[in-house]
């Protein structure tokens, strides 16, 4: 037997609401510690290199996702890159329209096989294109706290 009787009136369709406060710590790890310290202290980007695959990882990591080697070689990389792809996002996290749409891009960092997801700034959405050269704009040293948001955004070079 399946459902013999059903709720026939909307005012009988009761709901209960619930929420849970979730708070977590996220250990950034050996590579994350160095990556964010270089951003905070020096405004520089460092990655790790896999000598077997000749890949430079940004963000840096301790292992190669291709060959599974343990990575020990750190390399400083430029704070410039190219827009690999981008979007103009019109909604905030609640699904409401943003007063000012944001340009979010994946920036392939020069000299690496990785990159960073970040905002683009100091540019109109219509001017952005795949392949555009951009550079990281860091917050003032006093404002940095060792976070990806220590980079304000990437802006067109020149």
């Amino acid at each position: 037997m399946s459902l013999l009787e059903r709720i026939a009136h909307p005012n009988q369709a009761k709901v209960w609401y619930g929420e849970i406060p979730i708070q977590s710590r996220y250990t950034v790890g050996i590579t994350g510690e160095r990556f964010f310290r270089e951003i905070k202290d020096n405004g520089r980007l460092w990655g790790t290199r896999c000598p077997h695959c000749d890949l430079v990882y940004i963000p840096p990591r301790l292992y190669c996702e291709r060959c599974f080697a343990h990575l020990e070689e750190w390399v400083e990389v430029p704070t410039t890159g190219r827009v690999h792809t981008f979007t103009v996002v019109h909604l905030d996290l609640d699904g409401n329209p943003l007063p000012e749409p944001r340009i979010i891009a994946f920036i392939q960092i020069d000299g690496t096989d990785g990159g960073l997801i970040h905002d683009l700034g100091e540019v109109d959405p219509e001017e952005v294109c795949i392949g555009m050269c951009v550079e990281a704009v860091f917050k003032d040293p006093a404002e940095r706290r060792g976070s990806i948001t220590d980079i304000r955004y990437f802006r067109p070079v020149g």
């Binding site: 950034v28 994350g32 996002v89 944001r102 990806i148």
Partner: peptide, 13 residues
């Protein structure tokens, strides 16, 4: 949570 989430953009981006 470390590299992407602090940017707080709608994930359909």
């Amino acid at each position: 949570p470390v590299y992407n989430r602090p940017l707080a953009f709608h994930p359909y981006a």
